[in-house]
Design a protein around this nucleic acid. Structure first.
Lengths: 398, 398
DNA sequence: TTAGGGTGTGGAACTAGTTCCATTGTTTTG
DNA sequence: CAAAACAATGGAACTAGTTCCACACCCTAA
């Protein structure tokens, strides 16, 4: 067997000095020296392609740093992890070696040992695209994560509410082991998705407002905001401004709009006012729903003086149809939205609405997920963030 | 030294059978048996906390699978990577063992060896938040990536155009080794950022339309769309509809708006029409810019019959101020935007605008980055995607 | 003078995969 | 019928870090 390069016997194997020399020699013929295989391959390739041998640069590792600094590999690791057990001059020598070699530790290798990737997945269903609302949640997740040296992987899920749970094709990150530590679920969540996610036993936190059709049997970590309190407060404001004939326009087949309707209803009831729900079928979108609701309202024999909309888009649709019929907002009809989208402030007049702190939702999701990762046995919890009523220009005092 | 558990000497070390027995015994006192260290720690912890020893489950590895299937570890790896060099019955046996143990390969470990993480970073500056435009680009990146089993990490960069390049604090993903393979840069890009990114020697592709203040000296991979051709086509359309007095309203201090202005000017020139630029100072936003431009236009002694806006937001601002002054769009003034934001179609009347294929930009960025990763020495390239003029309701035929 | 405590350091074993050399058994070829 | 070619398989060495045991060394106390 031809030994290819120079004898590596001095020093590299000095640990084996307590073996008999014969045994060492035997070892030497059995074990390939570190890197020898690669080097042989390189030599061969180099000859084929007529390239210089050093054309394949070997990445600097802590072993290189250790050799350069004249210390052991453990010491390098201790310096990197700022453990105190290193003398000042050794640390200086190591840092100098690191600087000179331009060494950067490989994050991947560290992660195997730590059994944590420090990456969480922000998972959004394709039904929601990257709706500005969810984009803001993602921002919140990222901002909280980056402060704690965690990373956020963005993934999209393709499914329909009617797909059988076991047939939902989760993105490969969720199926792999070790790439991500946990998942933050945003977008509209149907029970089949929840079931599927639970089947892979990956820690997750869900944005709960858009959860549909839950029977309360399943338990999981969730973060949301208070739909009910939002419209309750908004409607009370309208009443305080002298309104008494107030309608609600929204698609209450959606659970979160339903909760908003309940908040509105509570405010009406507590003031002994009659709640009126305006709804339409076959709307193509929230804006369309608003437009059609507007037409309905205009057709009523007694018109309301104010309308609470299920969300900002519905409010915009209402505004469009009212304006087309020459009804001025807020002079003739006052209007309140929900969500506080970026565009609300750009409407003319700017829309009074219920503000939802989207970044805070993202941050809380991330916080909760990290808690879950640190305490896997912890009981599931649900956090409800408060909303805020923003007075702008679409409400008139009577 | 007390040996804690059962003698592991049978079989685990059978490779060492060619050592003398004495040497083997010596080895046995030196080397800790696989897992023994951990097990000792477990035992101790278990005694402290009064938990059963098996409370800490060891993750299933290919070695477990190999033992269960009665084959070597190499065979498992070959089956996992669907290499053809495995007989049919062995493969079946291995797959059965994988199924029975519920084994999932650890992605992290594989990545070290492959020297590819299969993760790319979508990097956005905090100046742009997650603007819907960039959110759509991110979607494009994700859709292309997921088709090729690549993952997308979302990161935000905090910097200002005036930060010294070396002082820009890149997110930790870019500073680490091995976590990401490359970067897609979106959002407004100033030269200092470009310089900083180049200093970490990480492959990257930039969305080029929002690059500011480049002198052309730096070379890098870029993907963008054709600002010039977009307004050229839009302006030609206006001319074909009989307009001759057409103004351009936009903040041409921004290079991409400048290019759009050039396109408009070309169209005007080729028809021997006089280009007119309407611009304002100290606008707070694009919408504000549009509103103020609208006021300017209304104050002119001879009003244009059509206005090309620098983007959809500016067009919206124009529309707002015109409407407030009782000027009807398109009856009295026609209007054209740029970008085709989601909201353009919701305006009343819906905005005629230049559509930019945002997902296609993201997809092309991802495609180009992968090409770069596979061919690091490849010459830098720049790809310009076409735009599309969308006729809606804001242009009137004269 | 020896035992004991503390700090600093080296390095084998570890993680969980992939790679490739060596070996065995089988088939084809000279 | 031997030699060569080939397919299937086992497993050590490999990747690039972390962990922790062992040991050297110094200082202090009995």
């Amino acid at each position: 067997m031809p030994k290819s390069t120079e004898d590596p016997g001095h020093g590299i194997c000095n640990v084996r000095a307590d073996f008999s020399v014969v045994e060492y020699a035997r070892l030497a013929t059995i074990r390939r020296e570190p890197g020898s295989r690669q080097n042989q391959a390189k030599m061969q390739k180099a000859q084929e392609t007529d390239l210089a041998v050093e054309a394949v640069p070997k990445r600097t590792t802590i072993r290189d740093v250790a050799r350069t600094a004249g210390v052991g590999i453990g010491t390098i690791s201790r310096v990197l992890n700022s453990s105190s057990q290193v003398s000042r001059e050794t640390r200086a020598r190591v840092l100098e070696a690191i600087r000179r070699l331009g060494f950067r530790p490989n994050a991947q290798a560290r992660r195997i040992l730590r059994r944590r990737s420090e990456i969480v997945c922000f998972l959004l269903s394709n039904r929601d695209f990257l709706h500005p609302f969810h984009a803001r949640i993602l921002q919140g997740v990222e901002s909280y994560a980056s402060g704690l040296k965690q990373h956020v992987l963005f993934a999209v899920l393709h499914y329909s509410p009617r797909t059988a749970p076991e047939k939902i094709d989760l993105p490969s990150v969720l199926q792999e082991h070790g790439l991500i530590d946990g998942v933050i679920l945003a977008g509209t969540i149907y029970p089949n998705l929840l079931q599927r996610i639970e089947s892979v036993h990956m820690p997750f936190v869900a944005f709960s407002n858009n959860v549909v059709g839950m029977d309360g049997a399943q338990q999981f970590d969730q973060v949301g905001f208070d739909d009910f309190a939002g419209t309750l407060q908004a409607t009370r404001y309208l009443i305080s401004q002298g309104h008494s004939r107030i309608d609600f326009a929204g698609d209450i087949t959606l659970p979160w709009i339903q909760r908003r309707f309940e908040g509105y209803r509570r405010a009406m009831r507590e003031n002994r006012l009659k709640p009126v729900l305006v709804t339409v079928r076959n709307a193509e979108s929230f804006v369309d729903f608003g437009q059609k609701s507007g037409q309905r309202i205009l057709a009523l024999e007694s018109r309301p003086t104010a309308v609470v909309a299920g969300n900002d888009e519905t409010a915009y649709g209402l505004w469009l149809s009212l304006r087309r019929q020459g009804i001025k907002v807020p002079d003739e009809i006052s209007l309140i939205g929900f969500d506080d989208r970026e565009e609300a402030v750009l409407m003319d007049p700017p829309l009074s609405t219920v503000r939802v702190h989207k970044e805070a939702i993202g941050q809380t999701c991330m916080k909760m997920l990290l808690e879950r990762l640190h305490h896997p046995q912890m009981a599931f919890s649900q956090r409800i963030l408060p909303t805020e009523f923003v007075v702008r220009g679409t409400v008139r005092q009577l």
